[in-house]
Design a protein around this nucleic acid. Structure first.
Lengths: 347, 347
DNA sequence: TCACTTTCTGCACACGAGTGCAGTATTAGG
DNA sequence: CCTAATACTGCACTCGTGTGCAGAAAGTGA
């Protein structure tokens, strides 16, 4: 019998032997657009799925320099926003016929991770809420590895960054508070050194001042629930308590609602309006009904993967910035949706 | 100048040339336990990090058949439990010096995904809340690819399954309800055809009957928040309303609390006790203070990766089942923790 | 100094596939 | 029936690294 050789692995040679053709023919049968007769292709395909053969990606990548692997570096997934983002990103990557090699960012060992990913010759690198050291940026550029940053804007060459329009959305929330008659308006920041938190604060302030209002107070919640609890207590303990708080993400906003009700006996939105960012699932829960900003994750992810595909084809493209338009979702935590004919922000 | 050749990629040849040694020497310098003199190793290392060289994993894997890649197939990450599980799993994998290639399960295209992963020669395959068709099971066994199933028990040969002791934990909750004086006790199932939901129901019933109680009613919530809302409405609309509900996960339990309060004006735990499963972050939030079962994700993940490492060394090991002991976390949704001297369940 | 061991080094082949090139089978045209 | 074009096919080289083997260098003892 012409069986495969000893080892469990089935190679193109085994298929070739069984099909009675050369190994090149097998290779060509699996390469779209290569010179193979209908006849041989049929023989090869029959033999192949008789043996359960599939070309070895590793070996293939060695000659083609295409691995169909995308390196993804993301943060802790406690925050449901990152979890959903990662999920959609992976789905989009696999839809494009590639596979995602995922690492959780570790602050200290980040460079090591990237270097590791490069040693797998990933076709592209996606950073989610993560920065890139200039050293690694150079390494990526040298190896022609395109880098896409989602949700963080990096001032580095040869890198595409995809973010939602944080300033625009935050301004809309600022204006919403003012229109609803609030005057003691506070901001709860995320991690202070991230572009997202800074942009949201800047936009929020701009929105307020556009309608003649100004920021009453602010605190830092570090994007976490616990941090949000502490920051909310801090803000609400003030002698002149705020009557509206914009939190830089939902996790902190939900914490703020909890604290307002449980610790301070406040009514939301009566005594305190709260708005968040991310439009996470929990924002829609009956207990919270939280007004939030939908960053349009599917849109972000689609852009990111499109950038990857473009970059793989035309190597060495320019740095770019992609801005995804977000959507304001109004719920009861700010007094519910406006009347039906009032226009959305933006245009 | 002895620079690297045209392309951006730096190979062992470039390093060899710069260090003035043979390419084999470079290879050995990067292979722990190989025959190299202190002197050559030093020269190679110096040259290597001058050029920023790192062995190409693809080429290396081609000869060693070790890729240090672990294939991970997981479900949608809307459920925070899976998100945390995935995060910890990836972290543990990277701590072990490997990298995770992650796919989101797609029901229909699952076999295709696994086949794709096998074509990357992953060292092992981890399935999270996913089944394995018998066809793929055979393929994995043939290629000597160890398969580890987390949180689902599969009746297939050559596969290790790691789950928490669902029956034990669920029984504990059943007994807790009875001890707290409840008699109209209901169960909310997850996805009916999963081993986890079935095991939890079986354990729960066993716990009840152990103390002479019996199940009052049940409904199916499919492990989702929306499903939980529907199931809770169904259970609570009954003419004889339950006074305690055990939900097969936290997402449904939180939904149940929301529905009980908002739609039925019930007090939790006064009118209705609720318990969940997973001990997700939200369970600890002030609004819910939900009693839940901690599955010990770090423990599960550690076992899983240990199994991988063991399986990579001694190929072709037996099917095994690993049972992780869970912890009951009592909070206000069942009336708060017991008095201090009462023993935990188990032993 | 010689024989022998020990410690390394480099050659050459292997891993599994893609692919340019030259050669062969097939067909068309005359 | 002959020639030339066409459609394939297979050889052999390549990708970047690991590794057995044989030979060189260095050390050891007599």
């Amino acid at each position: 019998m012409t069986e495969q050789s000893g080892s469990g692995r089935i190679t193109a040679n085994d298929v070739a032997r069984l099909a009675g053709v050369s190994r090149s023919a097998v290779s060509r049968a699996f390469t779209p657009g290569a010179y193979v007769s209908r006849d041989t292709r049929a023989k090869v395909e029959r033999a192949a799925d008789l043996l359960g053969y599939r070309p070895d990606m590793l070996a293939r990548s060695l000659t083609t320099s295409r691995t169909f692997l995308v390196g993804v570096i993301t943060t802790h997934l406690d925050n449901p926003f990152y979890a959903t983002l990662l999920q959609r990103l992976i789905e989009e990557i696999q839809r494009a016929g590639m596979a995602a090699v995922t690492f959780i960012a570790d602050e200290t060992s980040n460079d090591e991770r990237i270097s590791q990913l490069l040693s797998y010759r990933v076709d592209a690198l996606v950073l989610t809420n993560t920065s890139l050291s200039s050293k690694m940026s150079v390494r990526c550029a040298r190896g022609d590895t395109p880098v896409i940053a989602i949700n963080r804007y990096l001032e580095v060459d040869n890198i595409v960054s995809v973010t939602c329009d944080n300033e625009l959305a935050s301004a809309a929330i600022g204006k919403l508070f003012v229109k609803k008659g609030r005057r003691r308006i506070a901001y709860m920041a995320g991690e202070p050194d991230t572009s997202s938190s800074r942009d949201r604060e800047r936009g929020f302030r701009a929105g307020l001042s556009e309608l003649g209002a100004t920021l009453h107070s602010s605190a830092v919640g570090n994007y976490s629930h616990d941090g949000g609890v502490r920051a909310a207590r801090e803000l609400l303990s003030s002698s002149v308590r705020p009557d509206a708080i914009f939190c830089a993400n939902d996790l902190m906003a939900l914490a703020t609602v909890d604290v307002a009700r449980k610790d301070f006996g406040l009514d939301v939105p009566g005594d305190l309006m709260v708005a968040g960012f991310d439009n996470s699932d929990a924002a829609a829960w009956a207990t919270y009904r939280l007004t939030s900003v939908d960053q349009n994750i599917p849109g972000m992810v689609r852009s990111a993967v499109e950038e990857i595909e473009a970059a793989v084809v035309e190597r060495g493209r320019m740095r770019r910035r992609v801005l995804i338009p977000p959507t304001l979702v109004e719920r009861e935590s700010t007094g519910g949706p406006k009347s039906i004919d009032e226009p959305k922000y933006g245009s």
